[in-house]
């Protein structure tokens, strides 16, 4: 568990850090004000925020409001640590769906028990798409394909393996087990997954991946399935086809570019256009 403690008082942060690290074994990062806390939260993934209310510059309430309006941070559990006892304040906090409220002064055992009882789970990695769009299949980076259809698996292997190794799984459960054993950057999810559905599989993959980004590609038949895949947490989709040329053009998006042109395009993405403009 990665926890951010935001409190303007250094001694309070020190006490909380000691309790969380020693009693619960959690990783703790400290922040002395709300502005810095928001910056820290945007930079790395935390599973819990312990937040003081009365702080200069940006109060705990203001931090909460920013978090709840944030697409990527609105789900982070927040536990308030304050000496504030007024009912109207507590009511206001309830409206912000805080996960808990710890009253100061801090009592070590009480704090450890309360936090342990929250039964928090490490948050699934939901980093920005930029994190995963650089993940590709390549000769040195295998991917996993899960599909219950033998014909499609064989077709996929025959077409995809010239770009890099592909490990196949007949069911979602088997794919997740393979991923746990040896994680890959890209996982292709097809059809006939067995008892585990796409949504569960994506969740299990991300849990297994932890901080490591993984690009989950759903192989879809139509536009409706494409929308559904996004809703279920997949990062990308590719059209399901057994026409080699169509497959290749779809699949190339997930293959690491190689060769001199790819290197040039990485260095100077508009090089070809600049060449065209020089004559045209």
């Amino acid at each position: 568990m990665n926890v951010l403690i935001c409190d303007d008082d250094a001694s309070t942060r020190f006490v909380l850090r000691r309790i969380l690290a020693q009693n619960l074994g959690w990783n703790v990062v400290e922040s002395g004000d709300g502005v810095d806390a928001l910056a820290q939260l945007s930079r790395r993934r935390f599973d819990l925020l312990l937040l003081d209310l009365e702080m200069p510059a940006l109060s705990g309430f203001e931090v909460l409001e920013v978090l709840r309006e944030s697409e990527s941070l609105r789900e982070i559990p927040v536990v308030i640590v304050s000496q504030e006892r007024r009912p109207e304040v507590i009511m206001r906090l309830r409206e912000q769906h805080v996960a808990g409220y710890l009253l100061k002064p801090i009592h070590a055992e009480q704090v450890a028990d309360r936090l342990a009882n929250l039964r928090l789970k490490p948050r699934v990695h939901t980093g920005p798409r930029g994190d995963i769009s650089n993940l590709h299949l390549s000769r040195g980076a295998p991917s996993i394909l899960v599909d219950g259809n033998l014909d499609y698996r064989q077709f996929f292997l025959a077409e995809a393996e010239r770009f890099g190794p592909v490990r196949v799984a007949e069911s979602a459960a088997s794919a997740v087990a393979q991923f746990r054993k040896s994680p890959v950057d890209v996982v292709f999810i097809g059809t006939q997954l067995g008892v585990m559905n796409v949504e569960t599989m994506v969740r299990k993959l991300r849990e297994a991946a932890g901080d490591r980004p993984v690009r989950v590609v759903c192989i879809v038949n139509d536009a409706k399935a494409k929308e559904e895949a996004a809703r279920l947490g997949c990062d990308d989709t590719m059209a399901r086809t057994m026409v080699p040329s169509v497959f290749t053009s779809e699949f190339r998006r997930f293959v690491k570019p190689s060769g001199p042109v790819a290197v040039l395009q990485q260095m100077l993405p508009e090089f070809k256009n600049a060449a065209m403009r020089s004559i045209d």
Binding site: D9, T12, V15, D52, E54, Q83, K104, P105, I106
Partner: peptide, 8 residues
């Protein structure tokens, strides 16, 4: 702030 700190 003082109240919170000395509570520790």
């Amino acid at each position: 702030t003082i109240g919170g700190a000395v509570g520790n």
